[in-house]
């Protein structure tokens, strides 16, 4: 039942977004499922993207603290990624920007966005169509490494490639 509601609301949302694209703002009403205060339901992770049949691996791009500039060490990696994307024109990717836990939530959301945009712009400059590169920021919400030291933090300041279409 809940799933149905989610599905319907999802469709509603999408259609509204499509309708509202020109106006930039979409507004909608939706019933919220009133939560039960008692039982804590086990959390199911959001549905994973379907893995494409063509196996394409992209390496993650890493960044410095509070930085969104592409480092020298990422250049060859991004060149490879661009080559892959140019040879598989049917592939679209979502660039997910992340930050380490040091930093405030809202600023990190903006920082993650800056990072994913930096990677996108670099790939566009390498000849990949902008329309195939979506950007999204998770700020510090989804760390790759749960540790609280420089090694973990360095692993979390990143942009991950997620293949959306093949």
């Amino acid at each position: 039942m809940k799933r149905n509601i989610n599905l319907i609301s999802g469709i509603l949302l999408i259609s509204l977004v499509l309708a509202g694209c020109a106006k930039k703002q979409a507004t909608k009403q939706e019933e919220i499922v009133k939560p039960e205060l008692t039982a804590e339901q086990p959390v199911t992770p959001p549905a994973e993207e379907k893995k494409p049949e063509v196996k394409i691996d992209f390496s993650t791009v890493y960044f410095g603290f509070d930085s969104y500039s592409i480092e020298e060490t990422s250049v060859s990696l991004l060149t490879e990624a661009a080559k892959l994307l140019r040879s598989y024109p049917q592939v679209a990717v979502r660039l997910e920007g992340h930050c380490d836990e040091r930093g405030t939530t809202e600023y990190n959301l903006a920082l993650g966005e800056k990072r994913s945009v930096a990677v996108r712009d670099y790939l566009v400059n390498l000849g990949v169509e902008r329309s195939r590169l979506a950007t999204v920021s998770f700020g510090k919400e989804k760390p790759a490494d749960l540790g609280h030291n420089e090694i973990s933090w360095a692993k979390n300041r990143r942009v991950e490639f997620v293949v959306e279409k093949k």
Partner: peptide
């Protein structure tokens, strides 16, 4: 009213 309403869903960030 216990209603949820979308305020901003534009491309890119929608925060703070």
């Amino acid at each position: 009213a216990w209603k949820l309403q979308a305020i901003s869903q534009v491309e890119g960030l929608n925060t703070s």
